[in-house]
Design a protein around this nucleic acid. Structure first.
Lengths: 214, 214
DNA sequence: GGATGAACATACTACTGGGTATGTTGTCAA
DNA sequence: TTGACAACATACCCAGTAGTATGTTCATCC
């Protein structure tokens, strides 16, 4: 999509594989998605994929990496704009949600990767590669964490436990990767309205005071 | 746990299988979890499982069904108590979150089942069984939907699109099945405090007005 | 224009895992 | 006591799949 992605998706053939793989991983999950199926969806055979990737795990890792690269690229233009912490958070959150919707297959792969890492479903050899990807994702989350803390200092947010708040916020912002599916005749404005409602929910969640009323 | 579950988990041997299966499905996902592994974690072999269940899909369906049965049972005592819609919603949501935490393996299986259904990863034969389970889960969600609409009429909630609001709320309330893990020395009060923060986040999300400020 | 290598396809191996067929053990009723 | 059946264990079959080894084609460069 942008030039920066060429760093990992050197040629278009590799990127076609990445897109097909992301879709298959999304539709079947990591274990059930087969290399043959990815190849079939490309009108090709395994040979093509194993020519570019040494293993299924490496292919998946590249999908993960590409997904995170897309997120960083999308966030870059908005993360250091001026304004209140709340205004900055809102722009970042909106950008993130739009990213979840527009690159859903890749983001589902990122989700799968985090899940796999949490349950330790990786071989020791792949562990180091995975750790770097997870760390990339953690740093991305920390960007939001910083703005959230500023927002709390400003009085815009009122969450108690920061780690839980980060979890809940990303759970909300990421949720379209599970329930969003494009409608026929849907305009870009429709998608933006949808993303806005998601952002509003997350904002209300972060701003909610504790249980003080009945 | 309660007598009502005996309807589906007739004897303790079956329930042991269910618990082991739920844990394996949680740790590996549906496809990667093997019947042999479930049996191994019980100190048994496949024979025991295939004596009670005709197929892997049927075993999974029973885990799903048991998880939903647990949810209905937990919700029953609190769903028709008096009070404002907000107060009733809060009790229901809190109960739900506690349920997610305390029966996590089963709830992860329910999540997996919904995901599999959404991407159509079921054979036509299993489809009818699955449809009944999904419908059970939809009716459960509709209980919450009703209280949410009452709460909006009362002015406690301000969400725009109801379906999206239900999605976002359940995403928040269910999220502990992904990030919660018991700490050593954790008390029941600790868990309740954690659940309370989740409920507060969801409440704030449902109460958040739209983007009217900068 | 021939060699070389990238970019695949084809054919094959090894292994895992769902499912089945059959054997074994304990229990309980007649 | 014995037959019958539940509750498993054991042994086996077979389809699917990750990975490999090798063949084929086409462009490019000397």
């Amino acid at each position: 999509m942008a030039v920066g992605l060429r760093e990992h998706a050197l040629d278009s053939s590799r990127f076609d594989i990445l897109e097909a793989a992301a879709t298959c991983f999304m539709e079947r999950g990591y274990a059930a998605a087969s290399i043959d199926e990815v190849a079939r969806s490309l009108g090709a055979t395994k040979g093509r994929i194993y020519h570019h990737y040494p293993s299924k795990a490496d292919l998946f890792a590249d999908v993960f990496r590409t997904g995170m690269a897309m997120n960083y690229e999308a966030l870059a233009p908005v993360r250091d704009l001026p304004g209140s912490a709340l205004a900055r958070w809102r722009r970042m959150a909106f950008t993130h949600v739009m990213q979840m919707i527009l690159t859903k297959p890749f983001q589902r792969a990122v989700w799968l990767g985090v899940e796999m890492h949490l349950r330790g479903a990786t071989t020791p050899a792949q562990r180091s590669v995975f750790n770097a990807l997870i760390e990339s994702r953690t740093r991305y989350a920390d960007i939001f964490r910083g703005v959230m803390l500023e927002g709390r200092a400003e009085g815009a947010f009122r969450f108690a436990n920061t780690s839980i708040a980060v979890q809940l916020m990303f759970m909300t912002l990421n949720s379209p990767i599970f329930w969003y599916s494009p409608r026929s005749g849907e305009t870009h404005a429709d998608i933006e309205a949808l993303a806005a409602q998601v952002v509003d929910f997350a904002r209300g969640g972060l701003a909610s005071e504790g249980t003080t009323d009945a």
